[in-house]
Design a binder for these strands. Structure first.
Lengths: 189, 189
DNA sequence: TCGATGTCGTTCGGTACCAAATTGTACGGA
DNA sequence: TCCGTACAATTTGGTACCGAACGACATCGA
């Protein structure tokens, strides 16, 4: 993942687009968010997670359930940042490994609750400190203060998308229908 | 994706782990990197990319080839931050849409070059400004200076993983064999 | 010249992942 | 009681994604 120098990229973009103005700083932030996310994810998967046969997402789901206790699946999906359809599959995998247990909701037959098994609890108690040590490792070049500032900036981006993203998308489409997703299951008509 | 308040999360973690010390700032940075990455990706896919039937990764690959010109696939994969195996599939998809062209390397029969078709060029010329506008939208809560500081912090994390990640992983295993990946194709023996 | 060794891109086995469709349950009002 | 609407999780159809294995080619030394 050898990164092309930013300066060079800017020149190349300029050559491609000529007069059209580009927001470089914003472009760099977005690009680096994704580079960092995949670098960190890859590192953690290949260090602490591989040995216990978990994917990143599997770990995140375990984490959410561990911290929250028995929780409805839709909330777990939301907290873990994946769709509920994806969670169904991930939860099935975790269940088959004996780390997670499904229970039906006491009063609402539609809902399903997720909780850790004893084995899951035990795993997380030893695994989380290792995981956190890798978080510390990847963030080592940043001071505590820089970590906080960076985390805060990223949080503001998340909030921006969550609060204004929907409106923005509607505005962009400007009345046109929402353009069906080409991959995945076809829309009915 | 309603985010649990950080303070609350810390208390819950503390309750779970008791005396074991946790690096909270580093934990928050890693968590927010991933939240931001998926929020941004989702927003962009559902705004500008859906209409032209591209996934995030497909766009990134197009971008790399657009900026770099005709390029060997292994370099495209590296620059795009995906494995070469994944690139084979993505390139196939893009080729089938007529956006990308494969050429054999003039002197080395193993290599394959990727270049945009005219259609690909045309698409990027109109698509990239739209894409960049969404980058500006998601980063809107940050000043230009904050964008630079955040991008820089993220870049340092990427560099940290790239320069010390391998050593770190070896150190963690401490002589043990590398723990086979359980999912995916089985190791030979 | 030929074999060992390395490096390409591709194939393969498997999970992850999304959004639409589907199925099942809840709950209000007629 | 029955119907319609709302909301729950699951299924479905498709791409993305990784890393190991593979086959084709390159390169170097004997």
């Amino acid at each position: 993942m050898t990164q092309r120098p930013i300066v060079e990229t800017e020149q190349l973009v300029k050559a491609k687009l000529g007069e059209i103005p580009i927001r470089h700083d914003q472009m760099a932030v977005v690009a680096n968010i994704h580079r960092a996310a995949s670098a960190v994810r890859q590192h953690v998967e290949n260090s602490v997670l591989r040995g216990v046969d978990l994917t990143w997402t599997g770990f995140v789901v375990l984490w959410v359930v561990w911290i929250s206790g028995e929780t409805e699946t839709r909330l777990v999906a939301e907290e873990a940042g994946i769709s509920k359809g994806t969670l169904t599959g991930v939860a099935r995998t975790l269940e088959s490994r004996g780390l997670v247990r499904r229970t039906e909701h006491p009063s609402d037959g539609r809902r399903v609750l997720l909780a850790l098994t004893d084995e899951g609890e035990t795993l997380m108690r030893t695994l989380f400190p290792d995981f956190n040590a890798e978080e510390a490792f990847v963030a080592a070049p940043l001071s505590a203060e820089e970590c906080r500032a960076t985390a805060d900036a990223l949080r503001r981006i998340v909030v921006q998308v969550e609060t204004h993203g929907e409106d923005r998308r509607l505005e962009l489409l400007d009345g046109a229908e929402p353009a069906p997703r080409r991959s995945g299951r076809r829309a009915k008509n």
